[in-house]
Amino acid sequence: MAHLIEIRDMYKIYAIGDEPVHALDGVSLSVDDGEFVAIMGSSGSGKSTMLNILGCLDVPTKGSYLLDGLEVAKRSPAELARIRCMKLGFVFQNFNLLPRTSALENVELPDLYMGRLNRRERKARAMQLLERVGLKGREMHTPAQLSGGQQQRVAIARALMNNPPVVFADEPTGNLDTKSSIEIMNLFTELSNEGITIVMVTHEDDIAAYAKRHVVMRDGKVMRDDRGEGGRKTTEEVSRLVKEALA
């Protein structure tokens, strides 16, 4: 079976001054449908660059990237936008909801760019997704009227709006308190159990523990790719795994 995501021998090289910096240094990685992957590593390890390229927000300097069978490594900004629209959902650390705009409209937004549904269908789907993330009754609240955890739920609903094969999450709990973090990660776990593919970047071991597979990066290389055959790991096991990988 073809992989949902397959990158091969990928480089991302920034020229900072005279010295080229290899943010990605020959990375190969594949993700299958339904996986819940945590990409881990300290800052500067290349995990954000990796997510940007996986999320079609950036293009690699070298290497190939097959997303859902589609070669996306060398595409124009407009083409990448269409790909993001149809294939990807995003959850950001700082939620990135439109201010002074209702939760409902925030969730509807991706379909406005996709243009797949009519107005009634779009609203119905957005309502259904908000209910799914536990925000029934708060559809008309603006981000300012919602707590951080609730805002992130809206963002998750928005990421699911176009029914993408993959959802990318970039430090999704970075701006949340512990209780909200747990709620959000439980929500991700539920979504994963429903078969949604999730690729998450985090540097927190307890958050990474919710994922089934752990990719540890350093200096633009994958140091360890633990597919989680031994079942769900505890925070301590994840910590140990990371420590081993970076040793």
Binding site: L57, A81, M86, F90, L98, P110
Partner: peptide, 16 residues
Amino acid sequence: IREIGLRMSIGATPRN
């Protein structure tokens, strides 16, 4: 600018 970034990330083309 954040709004623009968000719109682009969820599928707005440069033309949009």
